[in-house]
Design a binder for these strands. Structure first.
Lengths: 88, 88, 88, 88
DNA sequence: TTAGGCTATCCGCTAC
DNA sequence: GTAGCGGATAGCCTAA
């Protein structure tokens, strides 16, 4: 048997058990936080919807705000050209 | 031993082996076809790019063509309203 | 007006319309084929389910078959070691 | 001009601007928090890797821990049956 | 009305 | 740095 007391710093099959467990649990804790934030976001959009906003459009706006204005401009111009070419 | 000859209609662990194998292989074959088509699509866009087209914009156009014109109109109107409201 | 007859090889806003349209339509056609295959796959799994097979497990098997046996073995060994270390 | 002072509770195109802006900014803030946590998770796995752990296996363990033990057992049993049937 | 499956979207990862 | 890939998630729609 290992010289370590069971449950602390023990090594099983060449694995540092406590370290491994720590990594796993920290990951899970962070995951839980992300999940909670995701829940908040969902609530937020529910409220927006209840206020009469269109959620899809809000998300579209948020996506636009992530881009440089010049990039938006450029892409919209190009799209317009293609649409005109196709008669859309 | 089963009365069936090995390899045909045998049952292992309550599983009809040949039937199972057939389902799996047919799935894999279909998957392979999808993959091949995906390759064709990739080639197609490479050619378009070589012809000077903007692939991102083409994909955007394709997405637009999947929607009803009235739906496009509606969403663009809404987006415009929101953008104006936000001074974008 | 362009010297080209309308609808053939015309250029609008610097865009070779017919070429663009061709790329788009070929892409859409390929997409449609992919969709059809996806439908076949869906039917296939419905049949498997009706035959009493577990669809989730079949999909798992298919995923395994994509990997090298040595890779499967290696990963399962590692997973076992970790599970034992954690008392799972 | 609206009776509201500019920049507060104003309505543009029938849109309650400040409310909309608030929803958007709160969403973006939450997004930023999620992104930060994602970064922490990435760091965590880098550390685990540096400690000699296999990241893929750790993630697998984490996925297992999300499931009920009975569910794991059930799925593994089924998978085993299918694999044996197929001679894998 | 609720549960389940399907689709579309998004994210991180990986391989080039 | 980019594109394809796989996994996860949310919303939609159907069927019970």
């Amino acid at each position: 048997m290992s010289a370590d007391m069971q449950g602390h710093n023990s090594v099983v099959g060449g694995i540092a058990v406590e370290k491994l467990r720590s990594y796993i649990e920290r990951w899970e804790r962070l995951d839980e936080e992300k999940r909670a934030i995701g829940g908040d976001q969902k609530d937020l959009m529910s409220m927006a919807k209840a206020d009469g906003f269109d959620v899809r459009t809000i998300k579209h706006i948020i996506a636009l705000r992530k881009k440089e204005p010049s990039e938006i401009e450029e892409q919209e111009t190009l799209l317009d050209i293609y649409r005109r070419a196709l008669g859309m």
